[in-house]
Amino acid sequence: MVAMTAREVATTFDLPDTSVVVAGDWHGNQDWIGLALPAVARAGVRTMLHLGDFGFWPGESNHLLKSVDYWASRKRGHPGVDRILVTPGNHEDWGDLDRVFAEAPGSVVRVSDRVWVLPRGFRFTIGNRSFLSFGGAASIDFAARAAGKTWWLSEIATVVEAEQAASSGDVDVLLTHDVGRVPGFRVRKTIARRAGDWSPTADVYATYSRYLVDSVVSGTNPRVHLHGHYHVRDSATEALRGTELVQVESLAMDGQPGNMVVLDLVIMSATDLDPWRRVPAL
Rank of each mutant, 00 (worst) to 15 (best):
E161L: 01
T158R: 05
S73K: 03
G148P: 04
V187W: 02
N62K: 14
V173P: 08
V217S: 00
G127R: 00
H78T: 15
L226Q: 01
A36M: 09
V111M: 09
G258H: 06
R210Y: 12
G258F: 10
N90K: 06
R46Q: 05
V115Y: 07
L245R: 15
G121T: 04
V2Q: 15
R278T: 13
T220K: 00
S139M: 01
L132S: 05
G106K: 09
Y211L: 13
T150W: 01
R145I: 07
D31R: 11
T176L: 04
M1H: 14
K189C: 11
P257L: 07
I126A: 06
T150N: 00
G184S: 15
F185K: 10
L245Y: 13
G44Q: 02
A41Y: 00
A72S: 12
V22Y: 04
E161W: 09
T243A: 15
D98Q: 05
T271D: 09
V111A: 08
E161H: 03
R120K: 06
Q164Y: 04
W152P: 05
R46Y: 01
K149E: 13
E155D: 11
F124M: 03
R223V: 12
H27F: 12
G44T: 10
Y230I: 11
F142W: 10
P16E: 11
V81L: 00
Q164E: 09
F56Q: 00
D69H: 03
A39F: 08
N259V: 13
